[in-house]
Amino acid sequence: MTALILDTITKSFPSAEGPVRVLDGLSLQIAPGSAHALTGDSGSGKSTLLHIAAGLEPAQSGRVLVAGTDLSAQDDAGRAALRRGSLGLIFQQFNLIPSLSVAANLAFQARLAGRHDAAFTDHLADRLGLADLRARYPEQLSGGQQQRVAIGRCLAARPALVLADEPTGNLDEGTGDTVLDLMLELTAEAGAALLLVTHSPRLAARCDHRHHLRAGRLEGGA
């Protein structure tokens, strides 16, 4: 089953000069286990595309299918359930729940999705180098460590599709590369599809598929 299908999506935002069409009949398909990078200039609509894919924002027209489920047919609760069960979201910052420990954060989404596997979570934590940090709280971690927890939490729930919005944007280059490597590696290991939004061609180059967003449509990739 295709992890994500975006079918002729349009989205526009109101502005002083009338509506600005950010996404203009955009279509995209992501196969299970494949890694896609989405690049584009600032304001080109990369994040909007990601938000629409995650059901966080509605499209004006077009269809979004996540793991075979049509988002436009779902109400808010249905979309939330899809986020819990099939999606993994990683943002530039504010990924973690500040009141929960690293261990609780790691297990959180898997438990929400009802497929918590302690051994798998521990395995992920080991792989992410978080084994010794499990009792800590988010504010006691460095940015890189926080992002690793976010990745671990996302993958522990075994999502069909991981959506990452500039996950290393807040990190220095070295740390960012390490985190990105781990993310790509573990996503592939878990068999999840990945859509990575980034402004950096260097990072995009590490994905199998690359798309460039310009004037509301995708260029290149496939």
Binding site: D76, A80, L82, R83, L87, L89, F91, F94, L96, P98
Partner: peptide
């Protein structure tokens, strides 16, 4: 809001 948004992103509705 900053504390609640991640939960919302993780699949809890704003209403909940």
């Amino acid at each position: 809001l900053a504390q609640l948004a991640p939960l919302w992103a993780l699949g809890l509705t704003a209403r909940r």
